[in-house]
Simulated assay, not measured.
Amino acid sequence: MKANGSTKTGNRILTRDNLKVLQKMESESVELIYIDPPFNTGRVQKRPRLRTVRDEAGDRTGFGGRRYRTEAITTKGENNGYHDQFDDFLGFLRPRLEEAYRILAPEGSLFFHIDYREVHYCKVMLDEIFSNGGTVSGRDCFQNEIIWAYDYGARSKKRWPAKHDNILWYTKDPKRYTFNLDESDRIPYMAPGLVGAEKASRGKTPTDVWWHTIVSPTGKEKTGYATQKPLGVLERIVKVHSKPGDTVLDFFAGSGTTGEAAAKHGRRFVLVDRNADAVKIMKRRLAAYLR
């Protein structure tokens, strides 16, 4: 477990095949696991990098009526995308999720982030894994399907456009698990006039539908990684489903959002990704927490 060396804080970024890392981790050693694996979309996942250049014939208008054009930025050797397609997607995931179950602490939670194409197959598989040979019911270990809803991007003219991801929440024990709802951020009431000024000013706790924007392509949060997830979504998971000092594991770590959410709130993180571009981004993003 010391592929890149250990740190004073215990935070680690490991560059290896995640299955090999998981197989070497101690049983029941991690309190919270969040993973955002490839979605098996069949596409190359890559986020383009753009810049604006002053051009009177350009496609954008800026301050003072000045015209600009947008152009893609390419850097020699840069490749922060990946081909998101598997011949046997569940066969790829299953041994990794079986190890994740073994590693999960008795009161721990697993959050599995996927999309509508694969969620039903993955849920059946997780029900089987969390049944643990029949000692408990995997269906009882399933707590919620969280819908992360956003409203960004193209809109299909042939069907209702898909603007959500699915996050499955499972607990090692169906009755005993960490859930600190008071630590959650609060959201506005949709009809504040119906609840009174005091409640409206305080806001309400979220439901299983989480409205949260994607990472803005031009915002400060963006890292340039193709499938980066918003910090706000991961902070909610970390704060409610773990305690300060706990260890948070993400073995499809990508841009490192899980690590930042964990470190900001006093948790240790273990991040695993074999993609060199992902590791480079994580090391830069999380440098302050690795010293």
Rank of each mutant, 00 (worst) to 15 (best):
N275E: 15
N11S: 12
S131F: 07
E221T: 11
E26S: 06
H113N: 12
I167K: 00
N79E: 09
R54G: 06
F112M: 09
E78H: 07
G10W: 02
Q45V: 13
S29H: 02
E235L: 04
G203L: 01
E128D: 14
V53F: 01
G232Q: 11
R285P: 03
F86L: 00
N79M: 05
N40R: 04
D59L: 08
R12Q: 09
G259Q: 08
H120N: 11
S242G: 03
Q228M: 04
P217N: 11
P38C: 06
T257D: 14
R66Q: 05
D182S: 08
A72S: 09
P206T: 09
K220M: 10
K243C: 01
E221Y: 13
R202M: 03
T218N: 12
T75S: 04
E71D: 00
L19A: 06
L181W: 15
A288N: 15
R139H: 10
G153H: 10
S29E: 03
W169P: 01
T258P: 13
T171W: 01
K204V: 07
S242F: 00
I33D: 02
G266N: 14
E99H: 14
R67H: 13
I73Y: 00
I114F: 11
E221I: 09
I187E: 12
R274W: 14
D165P: 00
E78V: 03
G254W: 05
R60E: 10
P174G: 03
Y225D: 07
D173A: 00
M125K: 04
A263Q: 07
R176P: 09
G138V: 06
A162T: 11
T15N: 12
N132S: 15
T258Y: 05
R47D: 05
S29Y: 07
K243D: 06
R16H: 11
E71A: 00
N132W: 11
G245S: 03
E145Y: 15
K24E: 15
K46S: 09
Y170M: 01
R12N: 07
A57Q: 15
R267P: 13
A263Y: 12
V272H: 12
